[in-house]
Design a protein around this nucleic acid. Structure first.
Lengths: 197, 197, 197, 197
DNA sequence: CATGAATGAGTCTTCATTCAT
DNA sequence: AATGAATGAAGACTCATTCAT
């Protein structure tokens, strides 16, 4: 009756598969990726894939949930720090993530898969967590001063997201648009947006 | 002497089918849309669809080419007018297009389909035309004065596109982000970006 | 109430279409040929094709029936002439027909279409007419002397057909097997077969 | 350590599917056979068929390649034996194969599918191997004596093939032409052809 | 008569998912 | 737990045929 299940090994395997999925989704989009390609990339059999993830869509939702968890952690970590620092850190986080060339492609894949009902929920949840977290930060920034008050916190948060998502999108579609080169403009544009230009 | 071919009727029918495709792609994405759904939406048989468009992907490329043509016309119309007006008109164009609730969804669908090799070319061509047109406008704006000169025209054009695409993206994913409400912020942000505010 | 139907014109048009069909069937086989290709080859619209021939298969059956009629005429013409001459003429007829490079391909196409129930009947009728005609000729040849009597007329007729069909088949599949070069061997082999080698 | 792949089982299954394909192709021709019919005949699902054979045409090419392999083995086995025996054995092989009532139909189906570009190559290869093998045998027969020398080895080989293919064709199209009954005439005709009758 | 746009039944093929080993 | 052979539902696309003009 040996305990064959090693939770650590299980978690590591799971992450390896998710990493393979990121590579594939980023390169070929969600619909353009077959589960067979993910298996090959991960070096596993198809049976094993479905042992860890019940459906192809669940790979995407797992990725989104993973990100949602990290986003929650991010906002939790900034709950007691100055709002302005939190907003700056959010932008820095985006710039750092954009350094992984797969991230921009993955974001596009997520958007493409967003039309699928199975993914829509996780995508909406992810966006809600980001929207809520940023809105809270912006509102606090308005209270603390430093963030403009002529727009609602919700709308400002939306515009910050617009800039960050637009940043990812540009990286994905424009070879010459490089995260490290454009980071400064992003920081400046967000700043300008936050304090009302 | 039967003259069954009525070019006008043909063109109208073609556009009707493309319109149905826009509706479907916007609602369910490219991969999520079946050709049968487009047929139903257009009120035609499957054979008729493939009489006008040889493949499902060609619907998407036709849409992109249609837009590319309009974009070229736009930039041609602004060739001899003040660059600043042209840039403003480009933003207004985006705001107006965003009024059609399907456009934002369609943009997402295009991004999702961009991984398909058949679509990639048309998508790249579309982006190139926009990039070139905007870059020319920005460069002229720099010469005429009024547009900042600390960034290259190419990079500024890229950032304008980032804002416009981000705008579409937000409309698609956020119910509360409405084109008419946010048009002012878009205008201001683009202005601020252009003059280095 | 002008009599618009010109029977001659109708017949000529019909033959032109059949000729186009022969070209297409010979080049691409029956299944490999689309009615659209026949229309293009004949320079007519699809509606016109089906005005003359109700189905694609009817093109094939018309071709077979055309041949059946010619075969009947051939055997009728040789009814009162020496059987040996008739058998020789039959071989010469095959050699002459094989000069049209399309004939061998057409024969293959007929064989390929023979599995279709709509064509099977016409093919069987064609073969029956040839079989009956040759058998009668052979039997008469046996009576007149000159043709071996150790095999039934039916079997000998079958073997003559085997040689002629094999001749067509070889021309179709072997570039270097040319009707004019091999005619002599065919004549000799048939002769040898008829008089029991 | 799971070893699910049993090469023997795989090969057996593959052959079972090919056998089902032979049955279907022989009965209804290549174009007249649907992949669904092959699946039903083989007792497998459609996915399984395409697990073993990527396309419908590949069933035909596999069949041809199978035969090509056997033909090569045949000629290899007769390389060091008297040429005359080899030629005789080739005819006996044809007679034996013709005993399977499906073979003649299959040959017709192969001819019908020969117009397809995917099949043409395998068919040409098959014919080349037969042509080369027979030509070598005939040439050796001429050297050893016993085979006429007034015709080139290539042409004689072509005529042997003409007789064998014609034999198959007759069996396919004429109910009363039975392999066992006509074997004697075939042997005699080939003999007569080989020694210049 | 001639036309070709419109049709939709029928095909091949893909691919997510299951399950026996 | 891991495998990959087997599955079949679903989808893109073809093409013979019809019919309004």
């Amino acid at each position: 009756m040996a305990r064959t299940v090693d939770p650590d090994r299980h978690r590591a395997r799971r992450l390896m598969i998710l990493d393979a999925a990121v590579t594939c989704f980023a390169a070929r989009g969600f619909a353009g990726t077959t589960t067979a390609q993910v298996c090959r990339e991960a070096g596993i059999g198809s049976g094993t894939l479905f042992h860890y993830f019940p459906t192809k869509a669940s790979l995407m939702t797992a990725l989104l949930e993973e990100d949602t968890r990290e986003v929650l952690a991010f906002f939790a970590a900034h709950r007691d720090r100055p709002a302005w620092d939190g907003l700056g850190a959010w932008v820095e986080r985006a710039i750092e993530e954009a350094a992984d060339p797969r991230v921009a492609g993955l974001v596009n894949a997520m958007i493409g898969a967003g039309a699928l009902p199975e993914v829509a929920g996780a995508l909406a949840a992810n966006e809600a967590v980001i929207g809520d977290g940023l809105t809270a930060l912006v509102r606090r920034g308005q209270d603390e001063g430093g963030v403009r008050a002529d727009l609602s916190a919700t709308r400002i948060a939306s515009w910050v997201t617009l800039l960050v998502d637009g940043f990812y999108g540009r990286i994905a579609s424009d070879e010459e648009f490089r995260a490290e080169d454009e980071a400064g403009v992003l920081r400046a544009t967000v700043s300008s947006l936050l304090n009302g230009g």
